[in-house]
Computed example of a mutant assay.
Amino acid sequence: MALTKAVQGRAFRLIHALLTATQKLGYASAFGTAESAPAPHRRRGGSPHLTITAQGQRCDFLILQEQDRADHIPTKKELSDAEKHSWVRIPRYDYSPAERLRICISGGSRHRADEWADTAARPLEHQLAEIVQEVGLRGEAAERKRLADLEAAREKRLRWEAAMDQAKIDYAEAVRVQRLEGQEKAWRRAADLAEYIDALRLHTQNLPTGTERDGAEAWIAWASGHVQRLDPLNGTLRLPDIPEPRADDLQPFLHGWNPYGPGF
């Protein structure tokens, strides 16, 4: 944790107080994943020292030791090195560990703050209630969001199911229209062919008896049967059976929805 001995005991008492208070509220706690302390300028991005979870919302805690800053007085060696080498940079400040601590929280939606630090007027011991409350508020916000997400997902599924039901209706209507238009085309085609067959009969009557006339009559007989089969009026007229639609069949009628589910 990179804490000096001067503050270790107090830091652990603060941690113990936090864990005791949050466990009484039913929150779960666990050791963090930190294995070593990062460099001071990267310590806020380090792995947590401990975690407290309220209503499913995990909050990561870092216990940091503050640093005092003082103007740096260059040494003779630093001045000499800087004069010899252009890449040498003399630091502007010196940092030393202070006896002040800072508690940082990450995870969830911030309410009051993300960090609490010792001040002359308010040491961290006086701010522990706020920190515990912050964990609870983040847990409540997470639970509200979870419930809202569930409701939004439920409403989305209902809208998807309604869209699927309507798409199946529209698909069935499209199948009927397609069948009707196909019958109309077949009927007109049959009428045109029947007119042509009538012309064939007139022509055949003028043919001499024999092979040529027999062939023409055979052709007319087959053509007449074909027209009979082609003309939808010669069949049973009824509503067509609607095949079970596939996903691709419904896609044109879904207006942006995915046939495989509301989450796609």
Rank of each mutant, 00 (worst) to 15 (best):
E173H: 07
V177F: 11
A167T: 01
Q166T: 05
L128H: 08
V177I: 12
R110M: 03
K185G: 10
W187Q: 14
I169P: 11
K185I: 01
R188E: 13
E184D: 14
E130I: 04
A174D: 13
V175A: 11
G139M: 05
L124D: 08
K185Y: 12
E173T: 08
E115I: 03
L137W: 08
Q127I: 13
A129I: 06
V132D: 10
R179Y: 11
L147F: 02
V135T: 05
A117S: 13
Q183C: 02
R189K: 15
R138Q: 05
H126G: 12
Q166S: 08
L193I: 05
L158W: 13
H111G: 02
A121K: 15
A162Y: 02
H111F: 09
W116H: 02
A194S: 14
A162I: 01
E181D: 11
R188L: 03
I197F: 03
R122V: 02
L128Q: 09
E161T: 14
A162K: 11
R138V: 07
L150I: 06
A191M: 10
A148P: 01
Q166M: 00
A113D: 02
A167G: 11
I131E: 00
Q166G: 02
A141Y: 02
R122E: 15
Q178F: 13
Q183T: 12
K156I: 00
Y196K: 14
Q178K: 11
A129G: 13
R188Q: 15
V135F: 09
Q178T: 13
E161F: 00
A162T: 01
P123Y: 11
W160I: 00
K168V: 13
A142L: 00
W187H: 14
R154T: 09
A153W: 06
R112Q: 05
A167H: 04
A152G: 04
E181M: 07
I197S: 06
V175R: 13
W187F: 07
A117D: 10
A186Y: 08
R176N: 02
E161L: 08
